[in-house]
């Protein structure tokens, strides 16, 4: 990311004169000291004036809305998907520790944590988009299609989501499943589990109501901390699959020197992560009545 915008204009226009440069600098306020420029920018942001995109020549606010929705859909779907896969896997392992199933799932978990998600994405594209041609290699929806029903729209967009969601979820599946296993093992060792079994409760109720409820507390911490990493990972996944979300916007604006877009999308992504952390903190209280916020 080189220099300031005026330098870029100079390189784009060789006929520019020194007087023009000075005029441009004062027009954009670049001749002021750095702290003053910062305060100008912060007060503009606070007023909701996010500025214009240098590359697309449209207000940043117009770009942010659709991008945020797409990223939100991608992150939520992959979070839900990874929880749906990881929790049953983890519980399965915790109920039969050191069995063959446990070893296989453990290997899968380690592979999931260790695999670079972007590489997995490439491999998935090679297999499903290039060789088998079952799924699209990238994008958001089929271009130039008018949807007749809502169902049709959802199905079309879902096809584009499958590969990104898998490559984004694989790491969190590994992490969540390992954590569920250890939290569940710990929870099932409690005395009240034995009591519940002794009084003749169905094993499903013991597992889910007594065991899992207690395993949830450490799990929520990990899930909350992972939201940030899923969000970060979304940047690479979005770039790889050409999915029009905030992550790809951050990347392309940084690469393309689109300052306003870069800064705003960066602020939004950081504040989304911070917000998620707060939500996780509040969730403790819901899950565990012993935690109170007085």
């Amino acid at each position: 990311m080189p220099g300031d915008p005026v330098e870029l204009m100079i390189s784009a226009n060789p006929k520019i004169t020194a007087a023009d440069v000075a005029r441009l600098r004062s027009f954009y306020g670049l001749d002021q000291p750095i702290y003053e420029r910062y305060f100008n920018w912060v007060s503009d942001i606070a007023k909701g004036e996010l500025g214009y995109s240098r590359t697309y020549r449209i207000p940043v606010t117009e770009m942010m809305g659709p991008a945020l929705t797409s990223t939100f859909v991608l992150s939520t779907v992959s979070l839900a998907f990874s929880l749906l896969v990881a929790i049953p896997l983890g519980i399965l392992c915790a109920l039969k520790p050191n069995s063959r199933v446990d070893y296989v799932v453990n290997l899968f978990n380690f592979a999931g944590i260790s695999v670079p998600s972007f590489w997995l994405g490439i491999v998935l594209i090679i297999i499903f988009a290039v060789k088998l041609q079952w799924l699209p290699a990238g994008g958001y929806q089929t271009t130039g299609v008018e949807y007749e029903t809502l169902m049709e729209e959802i199905l079309d967009k879902a096809a584009y989501l499958i590969l990104p969601v898998i490559s984004l979820s694989i790491q969190s599946i590994g992490r969540f499943s390992r954590f569920t296993r250890s939290a569940m093992l710990e929870a099932m060792r409690n005395d009240f589990i034995r009591t519940a079994r002794a009084k003749g409760l169905a094993s499903n109720i013991v597992i889910w109501k007594h065991g899992f409820r207690n395993a949830l507390i450490p799990l929520i911490t990990v899930v909350a901390l992972s939201i940030s990493s899923i969000f970060s990972g979304a940047l690479i996944t979005e770039t790889l699959f050409a999915y029009p979300g905030v992550g790809r916007l951050i990347y392309s604006s940084i690469i393309g020197n689109d300052f306003n877009v870069a800064m705003v999308s960066f602020i939004i992504s950081v504040s989304m992560v911070l917000l998620m952390n707060l939500v996780a903190d509040l969730l403790y209280g819901v899950v565990d009545p012993r935690v109170s916020y007085n």
């Binding site: 970060s232 940047l235 870069a262 950081v270």
Partner: peptide, 10 residues
């Protein structure tokens, strides 16, 4: 609490 990859990229 910062999202790692975006910060690293910046």
């Amino acid at each position: 609490s910062l999202p790692t990859i975006p910060v690293l990229i910046v």
